[in-house]
């Protein structure tokens, strides 16, 4: 076998390894996102709310504090994820030889674009729902990955579809809660139970998607 053929074979293996790393990184990111969003975004959020309102017995100031706290938690969480994504793509390179150097190609720029997009989509939250922007971010992520990579990330598409359905359920639930609120001032316990369930339902697809992508990465490495 000539050196050229050996190089060709080596690059195929290198590409497969990069793909494996990419899938594993995405898998981990989704599992972390699911768990962190549920824990930080819901449990701490509501515990804080309960403690604050029970201490002050003042719903309006409590709601304001929750909004501020939620924004800070979301900012930290999403900023951290954006950093993880940028780091992931900086460490994963599509190998090519140019001018005697092994260089990285557009996979890097896709990663940075995704991280910025993800960050902005979460920060510029669409009024009326806390989950719609997440669904939009997931779909855009899928299309960017599909354009930039040869890898198949169908799990991300499925995640977007599931989150979309959950968002609709959440929206309908909100409408009912508002109606309930009009006739029942002490709606807080129901509100919390509803959001606990929605938060939990939102977490599960993230974790399943993450584990599936992670597993796919291992299969890529083993089977080729």
């Amino acid at each position: 076998m000539s050196i050229i053929e050996e190089f060709d074979k080596a690059f195929q293996l290198v590409d497969r390894y990069e793909e494996y790393k990419l899938f594993r990184a995405w898998g981990i990111i989704f599992v972390i996102t699911g768990v962190a969003r549920f824990l930080l975004g819901f449990i701490i959020w509501n515990l804080f709310y309960l403690i604050y309102t029970s201490m002050n017995n003042n719903f309006n100031s409590g709601a304001l504090m929750i909004a501020v706290f939620n924004s800070v938690v979301s900012f930290i969480l999403i900023f951290s994820l954006a950093v993880i994504m940028i780091y992931t793509y900086l460490s994963i390179r599509k190998t090519t030889i140019k001018d005697g150097k092994l260089i990285s190609s557009k996979i890097l720029y896709s990663g940075i674009a995704l991280a910025i997009l993800y960050f902005l989509t979460f920060i510029l939250q669409i009024p009326g729902s806390v989950y719609w922007e997440e669904v939009i971010a997931i779909f855009i992520c899928y299309f960017i990955l599909k354009r930039g990579l040869k890898s198949d990330f169908k799990e991300i598409l499925y995640l977007g579809v599931i989150l979309f359905v959950v968002s609709i359920v959440e929206f309908i639930g909100r409408v009912f809660l508002v109606l309930y609120f009009l006739y029942q001032p002490l709606f807080t316990p129901l509100w919390i139970i509803f959001y606990l369930m929605i938060g939990f339902v939102f977490m599960i697809p993230y974790i399943i998607t993450g584990l599936r992508i992670f597993r796919k990465g291992s299969l890529i490495l083993e089977e080729g």
């Binding site: 050196i3 050229i4 074979k9 080596a10 390894y17 092994l102």
Partner: peptide, 25 residues
Amino acid sequence: TTQTLPSNELFITSVRLTIMILLFN
């Protein structure tokens, strides 16, 4: 090309080439 390429005995197999490229990255 095959005749004139620089030969490094250690890199003549795709296994060691792959290892070196991955470690280089």
